[in-house]
Structure formats: structure tokens, C-alpha cells
């Protein structure tokens, strides 16, 4: 590396402190990826089903556990888990939608919240019974081990992969919904399901698939986080509350809004960890309060 550039002529202590800052920024970007993937799923589901999916955190956890089972029972590796886990959890979600959530159509929003909260308790309770509360290790796949020296910081390859891959998935979802024919049907059905049905489109099936898609995104985030955060039954329980705050800040009206807010809040959280670690748990909630005081409708959302 060009060691003669003025940036690198600083003292060792300064450089170390900058290293710590970059490391926290990276952690922030990773958390931001999870916030983005989860809030994106929540927004898509809310658009079609008018339900805030409280079970989202539990299904994220299930995604990580499915990856763990695939590896430790059948010896199926990470790359297949990345594909299979969202499909398995997505199908599980679609069964939930067909057998329960479907019956909430036309009822007050809050019943959806209560039902999915109950589902979250059931899923998390069952996993806690069998696996306790401690974490199970999930190793980083061989291809993504090690790190790169970027000159200003050391980047573990897996962490870089999580950020890039999440970003690609988020943008692909945005493209699917905003730029394809299927997405157009979806957006139309969000606005006026009856009219879309009159055009001969099977809206109930689309609702089920949407729930499967949203849940699949949560499971994908779960697989991505398994090698970083270990696999724990309660890994999604606290996360989902932060994601709710993210959703309140960003609003659920816009897909791109969810993605940007998710990443931005992750980065802000990472910076807080560096500059004022005591507030790193609370900074997202404090920001939510500030946004509500200044702009009650949220940054991108329409008034609800």
C-alpha cells in the first residue's frame, strides 16, 4: 500500500482509533443490512395483508435454525442453505397465512398484530425448549474465510459479503416490485384488491405468495447472520422491536425508503457504538422519538 500518503502518516494511536471506527461502521452496515431486509419484508407484507407481522423476528430465527439443521443433520452447505432456508421458511409462512392470517381480512389491524405476536411466542417457545437460550455455532463457509487488507482497514471477507449480498437482494426486491409486471399487479392489488380480482388475477394466491416472499426475506437475513451472531432461539425477539422503530422512522409506504432507512440507521448505530457506546442500544429509539416530534408521518411514509 502507498504508505507515503498523508492519511497514513498519523501516529499509531490515531490509526488504531480510526481502525476501530471503521470496524464499528462495518458492524453498523451489517446490522443495517438486517434492518433493511426485515423492514422491507414487513413493508411488503403490510402493503398486501394490512398486517404488521410480529412473527417476523421468530421467522428470521427459524431461517438461521434451518441453515443450522441443513448443515449439521444432512451436511448441506451454506450456499444451498442460502437458497433452501428461505424456501422452507417461506412455505411455512404460506401455511400460516392459509390456515390463520387469511381469516383476519376485514378485521381491525390490531388483531393481525396480536395473532402474529402469539405465533412468535409459540415459535420462540418451542425452539427455546429444545435448544435453551445459548447460541449454537455456525461456521463461515470456506470460500468466505479470511480477510482483505483495504489499506485503511482489515475487512473480513464474510462481513463484506453480507453487506454486498443484502444490498443486491434488497435492490432485486425493489426491482421486482417497482419494475416488473408481477410487481405492478402487486401494487395494484394493494390499492384496490376487488378491482384487480375483476381483471381475473388471483388476489388471494398473490397475498399468500407475498407473505411467503416477506417471510423468505426474513429467513434469508437469518441465514446471513448465523455465522456472525450464532444461532439462538431469541435472536429475533429484540431485533424485531428495533425493526419496528426503523419502520416507524421510515414509514412503510416506499420500498426504497425501507432499504435506505434500514442501512442508514445501522450506520448511525455503528457510529454511536464508537462515539458513545452507552447509547448504542437506544439510539434507534431516540431517533424514532425525534422523527415523531419533527415529522410525525415518518421520513418517507404516508400518514397512517
Amino acid at each position: 500500500m502507498a504508505a507515503e500518503t498523508p492519511e497514513l502518516k498519523r501516529t499509531g494511536a490515531e490509526r488504531e482509533s480510526m481502525q476501530a471506527l471503521y470496524a464499528q461502521l462495518l458492524v453498523g452496515l451489517i446490522n443495517g443490512s438486517f434492518y433493511a431486509l426485515l423492514s422491507l419484508g414487513l413493508a411488503v407484507i403490510f402493503g398486501m395483508l394490512n398486517i404488521i407481522n410480529f412473527a417476523h423476528g421468530a421467522l428470521y430465527m427459524m431461517g438461521a435454525f434451518v441453515a443450522y439443521f441443513l448443515l449439521n443433520i444432512w451436511g448441506i452447505n451454506y450456499w444451498w442453505a442460502l437458497l433452501l432456508s428461505p424456501i422452507v421458511v417461506g412455505i411455512f409462512g404460506m401455511i400460516l397465512e392459509r390456515t390463520m392470517l387469511k381469516f383476519l381480512t376485514g378485521l381491525d389491524h390490531l388483531y393481525g398484530l396480536l395473532l402474529t405476536f402469539g405465533l412468535a411466542l409459540i415459535i420462540q417457545g418451542v425452539f427455546q425448549n429444545f435448544f435453551g437460550s445459548s447460541g449454537l455455532p455456525y461456521s463461515i463457509p470456506d470460500q468466505l474465510r479470511g480477510g482483505m487488507n483495504l489499506g485503511f482497514m482489515f475487512l473480513p471477507v464474510y462481513r463484506g459479503w453480507v453487506v454486498v449480498f443484502s444490498l443486491v437482494v434488497c435492490l432485486a426486491t425493489w426491482f421486482l416490485i417497482e419494475r416488473t409486471r408481477l410487481g405492478a399487479y402487486l401494487r395494484a392489488a394493494t390499492e384496490n384488491p376487488t378491482l384487480v380480482r375483476a381483471f381475473g388475477i388471483n388476489v388471494p394466491r398473490m397475498i399468500t405468495l407475498t407473505y411467503g416472499l416477506g417471510v423468505g426475506l426474513a429467513a434469508l437475513a437469518g441465514v446471513l447472520s448465523a455465522p456472525i451472531n450464532q444461532v439462538r432461539p431469541l435472536m429475533g425477539a429484540d431485533l424485531i422491536i428495533v425493526v419496528f422503530a426503523v419502520v416507524v422512522i421510515g414509514g412503510m409506504g416506499s420500498i426504497m425508503g425501507s432499504i435506505i432507512t434500514g442501512f442508514a440507521l445501522g450506520v448511525i448505530e455503528g457510529l454511536t457504538k464508537y462515539f458513545y457506546p452507552e447509547a448504542s442500544n437506544t439510539v434507534v429509539f431516540v431517533l424514532m422519538v425525534l422523527v415523531l416530534l419533527v415529522k410525525p408521518t415518518g421520513l418517507t411514509g404516508r400518514a397512517a
Binding site: 395473532l115 405476536f117 402469539g118 405465533l119 411466542l121 417457545g125
Partner: peptide, 10 residues
Amino acid sequence: VTVIQGVIFV
């Protein structure tokens, strides 16, 4: 107990 509470919710 958590699971039962969840079932009651549902």
C-alpha cells in the same frame, strides 16, 4: 408456558 400463552393468543 410461553408456548401455551402463544396458543391462547392465537
